[in-house]
Nucleic acid binder design. Structure first.
Lengths: 211, 211
DNA sequence: ACCTGAACACCGTTCAAGT
DNA sequence: ACCTGAACACCGTTCAAGT
């Protein structure tokens, strides 16, 4: 049968992705199957493969959409130029986002591309945008010309937060005294930023700038 | 057929787990299936379910075994009482372990228990042992009586390292200037520890001890 | 050109039936 | 008591055949 063309290719792409999002929100990565997505949009499984290369492709697009969503959410944070305070504000917003999108968000870390494939460029770009928010909060610490060091620190902080979230979420850090993700994340932010500032001070002392 | 009893229950448990380990090392979590494990040990899939509750159970036991293995590996590190240097030594050993056990190790973070189940106690105990190594390296920073703060810091560092490893491994942090996991991890260790030390100094200054 | 649905090669898990 | 193997309800992916 066919040439239903209830939807063109672009529309199909969009409704499939939002069906996937819906399933992911409630059932997580394990529940997100091609057959369920197809069912949800009222097409056969085969049709999905006209629009997406395979499930990995669909999932990466879903993740990219999620990165965009979080970016918009976090971009509304107005900092005051104090790295620790600003990062704590970002953390609060981030946690609020998490609360409503746990299953969706976890897919970002659970999903692993096969070793022989790598992430597309547009994925990297979306990620860079998000990292920019953290870089921006950290930037007062670094003198101009040290943008690379700032970018690296932002990445360290980003990855660390996700390690904390992922492990505390999975209950893989509950030992005797269980702390919440937020408490641990604040320890991380405060200590890491203080360490960065301290490191800069040491550089200033060792190699004082000529005024 | 049956009552082969080539192996008793305990032996079956052990050979199944080492078959799982072998498969996991080369094929990762996705390649680790009940049918393959059964095949590898020369039994039918059904037999596995006499020994393990289900695949989640088998995988958790595999992870626990891996935690033990890493513990033994890291316990050989002899520190000198300088937190940053000691942690760098631990990091080096950890990276060496990773190099030979990437697929196996990643299962620790990829695998997610269903929401309605939680990790067994013996898992938590093995984890606590491993965290003890980091606590030990951090302990010179904290005055006695602050063991909880030390334990929290160790957990933050542990989870952060795994966030870094997991994301750099998956290529999910490659932006413009890609740094290696080791470089980023050293930034984390140095800054985080400096921040902890700085925080302690501030407490000492604000509330000086009576001598 | 677009879509279907059957087919293929897999899964995890259960359980009647065999020894 | 222990193990099998068929069965059930799923997977991702492909592709000849239909409109």
């Amino acid at each position: 049968m066919a040439r239903r063309s209830d939807h063109n290719r672009g529309e199909l792409h969009d409704i499939a992705l939002s069906a996937a999002r819906k399933i992911a929100l409630t059932e997580g990565l394990k529940g997100l199957t091609a057959r369920k997505v197809a069912d949800e949009i009222g097409y056969s499984p085969g049709t999905l493969y006209n629009v997406f290369g395979d499930m990995d492709d669909l999932i990466i697009q879903l993740i990219a959409q999620t990165l965009d969503e979080l970016y918009i959410y976090l971009a509304s944070v107005r900092g005051e130029g104090n790295p620790i305070d600003d990062l704590k504000l970002i953390l609060e917003k981030y946690i609020k986002y998490l609360e409503g999108h746990r299953n969706l968000w976890n897919i970002l870390f659970e999903h692993q591309l096969p070793n022989d494939r790598s992430l597309p460029d547009w994925y990297t770009i979306k990620l860079a945008k998000l990292l920019g928010i953290i870089e921006n909060a950290l930037s007062p610490i670094f003198p101009s010309g040290q943008e690379d060091a700032c970018a690296n620190s932002a990445r360290v902080l980003w990855a660390s937060l996700h390690g904390l979230n992922s492990l505390s979420e999975a209950g893989k850090m509950r030992t005797v005294s269980a702390q919440s993700f937020q408490e641990l994340a604040e320890i991380l932010i405060v200590c890491f930023v203080k360490g960065l500032q301290q490191t800069q001070k040491e550089i200033d002392t060792t190699m004082p700038e000529v005024h």
